[in-house]
Design a protein around this nucleic acid. Structure first.
Lengths: 245, 245
DNA sequence: CGACTATTTGACGCCAGTCAACACCGGTGG
DNA sequence: CCACCGGTGTTGACTGGCGTCAAATAGTCG
């Protein structure tokens, strides 16, 4: 199995976690993927307002959706990991309302919109699964609204790490409550609507209480039970049940 | 034209604002709608976790998506107006991650999931427009994340009213910067991640500066230009451009 | 080693939250 | 007709969680 095939498995694993894919559908999905591209860390590779003709599947590395305000304040809407179809939204929106950037070196595959359109004509069930993946993005957005709107600083951070743990497990990149998340405390601040200084303080608190350690881009969950309670984390919104869609 | 037909026009108007629908597609859409139901104000009519077999199109009145934390704090994710397909997300998610409630007396139409599935098989372009409407929900969610995460209290409130003005205009319920939005200051607080008391103070500020008046569920935009500037409001995320999807 | 970025910690300030009292308004029932 | 009531809106005094500013300490890469 080539490296590409192995990485594409992550995207398939995500879909298989939610429904059964037949061999034809898997083949069509693989066939839709175009060129691979490597992008270094810290690049904005899709910009708000650009006209899009291709969507992008993230194969490896960490990326994010974000928007800025005029004063330079950045808000990250969602973190993305291998297997996430990061700008599938652009297929029908035609132009994104936000930017997409790489937080680490990443590997992506492009998918022409025309091929996605063809899938909606010839493979409605596969199309529904693609649709579903954008619905799960929306569910993740809603959970973030709840976090930023109503959870306190510790709860927001705890919730983010709970979510990423589950999403990493789905693609086989987390086990035993450990996973790599090579981002900075400033990135966490931009995701949780806090400042880097306050994130630092709350991370210390979580560490001191034995709930979680975040160091050198490595997350170690110390006490999953208590962390989830602190965050009021319920993974239901990630829709990890295999059923006919 | 019956009352129902007139209200269904709002949903069609929303789609027509984004793409061209042919007569067949309009007929199929109308045909998909089942029974009408009236629901009084203040009811939660779809609950998180319920198994769903139908989706709901909001025809008239105001509804919202919301989640609560254990302590009783409520966060409203999105306000909905006539023509919004409020729980289309449930079609593929099967169970919602959040609740949907009526903020005023509302009129809804139910749509069996089976009929939606049939549309994805027989009318791929119409299906893409339904998909698009959920993508716009996601875009609205992202803008709310930005608001709550990085805008100050005045900016959040100003932004909300800018957004609702545009969305009301699309369905013909706002003109000259005036529209009815019969919700309470507490509801605005739950939407913007603030407290009712602080919302009250900021509304006074907006009123004193002549930007906006909110009284008795009636919104009057005093100075649209300055309000939009205060909110850093750019309607691009609402995707109001008619093009082939 | 030097330049740079990320992390850590402390002191202080402010925006928004909390608490509380009062006004207003529509509805209800005596 | 008025007393009452619950929900909503308004305002003031005070508090606190998080932001800001600043400086010192790691860690990393040429």
């Amino acid at each position: 199995m080539s490296n590409k095939d192995r990485l594409v498995e992550r995207a398939l694993a995500k879909m298989r976690a939610r429904d059964v894919l037949d061999a034809d559908e898997e083949a069509v999905f693989r066939g839709a993927l175009g060129d691979l591209r490597e992008i270094p860390a810290g690049r904005t590779f899709v910009r708000a307002g650009e006209n899009l003709t291709h969507s992008i599947l993230l194969l490896d590395g960490i990326a994010c959706r974000y928007k800025d305000l005029a004063g330079g304040e950045r808000q990250i809407m969602e973190l993305h990991v291998g297997g996430d179809f990061v700008d599938l939204h652009g297929f029908l929106l035609k132009r994104l309302d936000h930017n997409i950037g790489s937080m680490t070196p990443i590997l992506i595959a492009t998918v022409p919109h025309e091929r996605l359109r063809e899938i909606t004509r010839s493979h409605p069930h596969l199309a529904r699964l693609l649709w579903l993946s954008t619905l799960i993005d929306a569910a993740i957005h809603r959970e973030r609204i709840l976090s930023i709107g109503r959870r306190d600083a510790v709860g927001r951070i705890a919730h983010l790490f709970c979510e990423m743990a589950v999403r990493m497990e789905v693609i086989g990149l987390a086990e035993g409550g450990r996973y790599r998340l090579p981002i900075t405390q400033g990135d966490i601040a931009d995701t949780t609507g806090l400042t880097p200084v306050h994130v630092n303080r709350m991370l210390k608190k979580l560490r001191d209480e034995g709930l979680l350690t975040f160091r050198g881009g490595e997350v170690t969950v110390g006490d999953r039970e208590r962390l989830a309670r602190e965050a009021e984390f319920d993974p239901a919104y990630l829709n990890l049940e295999r059923e006919p869609r």
